[in-house]
Write a protein that binds this DNA or RNA. Sequence first.
DNA 1: GGAAGCATACTTGTATACAAGTGTGCAAAG
DNA 2: CTTTGCACACTTGTATACAAGTATGCTTCC
Lengths: 220, 220
Amino acid sequence: MTDKLRRASGGQVVYAELKRQILSLELPPGRRLFEPELSQQLQVSRTPLREALRLLLAEDLVDQLPTGGMVVRSLSAQEIDELYTVRAALEGLMAAEAAERMTDEGAEALTRLVARNERLVEFAEDAMNAGHDFHLEIAEIAAHGWAARLHQQVDGQMARYRAFTNQSQLRRTAALEEHRGILDALVTRDAARARQLAEEHVLTARDTALSAIGERLPSA
Amino acid sequence: MTDKLRRASGGQVVYAELKRQILSLELPPGRRLFEPELSQQLQVSRTPLREALRLLLAEDLVDQLPTGGMVVRSLSAQEIDELYTVRAALEGLMAAEAAERMTDEGAEALTRLVARNERLVEFAEDAMNAGHDFHLEIAEIAAHGWAARLHQQVDGQMARYRAFTNQSQLRRTAALEEHRGILDALVTRDAARARQLAEEHVLTARDTALSAIGERLPSA
DNA sequence: GGAAGCATACTTGTATACAAGTGTGCAAAG
DNA sequence: CTTTGCACACTTGTATACAAGTATGCTTCC
């Protein structure tokens, strides 16, 4: 029998590594990417490296200079605003779908995540992750492949700036309360309310994020 | 002065050509893509061809076989359903934004497009294009880069199947009427109603499309 | 006649060599 | 001292050569 899982091709791991470096800000926005340099750093030839760069380009994580060559993409405050807006629409859609597909197991999983968030609300990092998992679980339950795909794309764009969002414990507590509301709408299978609350939740997060980021982002 | 517009690289034109062939069904879903074959057909070496394939892969227009190699992606009926659903959410969002940003020029452009659609409602192809332009103009007015980008992506996926949608003149007349309603909501700057109507419009189109496609798509 | 094993041709993935264009820095002239 | 022109180093884009793995079809054995 041939192995079902073939080892990831070099291009794939280069793509994953570069993406990680971009999202973790090791490669900051605006940074020019030189193929020979990265090639040597990652110990692959330019061919698989260029493959990885094309994937990142299609994902809008890097930009192509008019002259050729790539730079790590920068986001303006307006773009962050836009990303939150479409994310709100997508999460609203998925929440409505999830409400209709809700199962006992799903409700249990979500309840656990809210409880975890409750315990960790005082730790910014952990609370942020728990909150993020809550949204991912809703996406899982919604079982809406394309909404999930687009959401993932948008989420990846915002990943670099997420740390700015939940720094105030006041906001984290409020967010937790909003999650409770969404959970309630979901388990009672109230699709319209779930959608409404999920949307408002993201838009509230947007306002927090934008005012938090505000002065830090000139425009870039 | 150096020319601002550099000629498109070979990979770019190969990408555009392959995308055109996929969307026009010249390369039908399920078709295996062999690099040497396409390479010779398009008169480029495998290197820029592979670049184009990576871009198509990131756009979900082709799939990667577990063994390596690409096939033109197929959409199941459920996926088409999902695509319409997210498209409804995105167009609703853009309609709301457009209502708030509406200008006299925008209103005039939209009115012209509705009038054109009116004249051409009996010709399936032309009416379809006019209707599509109506949505694009709304996207233009909304000036929401990320919503437009995601919408374009979704629209590209559905492009292969759009011909199935507007085959009945009854549906085309109804769609025209829905466009009039959206236009009215937009020019009166009623964001909530614009969003609602735009969403319902797409969901109605979805129902038409799915029942029209229904038997033609086994699942694949 | 059917099945198993093997050789072969073809596929993709990777590396490297080559060509064309771009920007930079220095030198020289005004 | 400034500015213009040029040469060079370096960049990306492309083609080709090579390696490894896969599927296919034939031969051979049961």
